[in-house]
Write a protein that binds this DNA or RNA. Structure first.
Lengths: 152, 152
DNA sequence: AATTGTATTTAGAATCATTCTAAGTATTGA
DNA sequence: TCAATACTTAGAATGATTCTAAATACAATT
């Protein structure tokens, strides 16, 4: 049975990380975070807003945007930008990259290889990288997992 | 001396590739393409519009967007999306990836290593990749090339 | 418990990038 | 020359996001 209630563990984590960035724990922030953890399908801010509203009808889209920013700053979620449409959010904090299917529009998490530590790029000495993102485009091969699948 | 005039070579290329996609060669398209080749600093559509207007004052932003789309479809330029702000355009068609400096906002082209053909990711068998993008964030180390440089 | 300062939430307005619309213009092929 | 189609244009519309200003909540004192 899946618990819908707050896990003290996750709440502590949230409260601690918010405090560490000088931010307060609020019911809205807890609820938005929990919404993201409940359904890890890379929702847009608007998706999160609609889902959060189901259980907290008074929440505003501005608070959702504000909270998503706060969670990103705390390192609890990541932004995903594989298309040029709305930013999506990811609560999987394991290092991974994203695969975007141009047919069904779904985003799949893709893991890195075990031994990888070297990137296939020559970064000039005058540029200091802090973050590397690999994003892959393509299509799902399985019509079941890819409902909009039409062309090969 | 830098020639501002049309190179017959590049025009042929443009006309041929447009025709191949069922599109016509127009003075606006030629001018936008030339504008991109003249200054290869990853401009936004609005940058291209302002630069193109200098020599062709009647051109509209709609035509610039339309032309940029056409050039992308023809394979003559590429879109670059390293931030979530306006899409940028790149006329360097050599395979490469992008480095975005969070301090000066400049985008630098970064080459791939010679022998690289394997990506450090485990793509599941049910996903067929068609395009892989690596984008790097960080900062320039040289205050001269990075004017806004403040923090280390 | 009252007070003060600050953070947060909210609705709605504003902004920015981009796309759409509808009308006019240009180009191509018959 | 004519008809069909492509292209350009200004301006309106859209979608995502940020900003604004007022109300509310909270935390740390008094």
């Amino acid at each position: 049975m899946k618990e819908e209630q707050s896990s003290t563990q996750e709440n502590n984590d949230l409260a601690r990380k918010l405090a560490h960035s000088g931010m307060r724990m609020t019911s809205q922030r807890e609820h938005v975070y929990r919404t993201l953890l409940n359904q890890t399908d890379h929702p847009t801010a608007d998706d999160v807003y609609l889902r959060a509203k189901a259980d907290m009808p008074e929440i505003s889209i501005a608070t959702v945007y504000n909270t998503l920013d706060a969670l990103v700053k705390c390192g609890l979620i990541k932004q995903v930008n594989v298309e040029r449409t709305a930013t999506r959010y990811c609560s999987n904090m394991k290092e991974h990259c994203h695969f975007f299917c141009g047919e069904c529009g779904n985003i799949h998490d893709v893991d890195y290889k075990k031994g990888r530590d070297e990137l296939p790029v020559k970064i000039p000495r005058n540029l200091i990288p802090t973050q590397v993102d690999i994003s892959i485009r393509g299509h799902c091969i399985n019509p079941l997992s890819c409902p909009n699948r039409s062309k090969n």
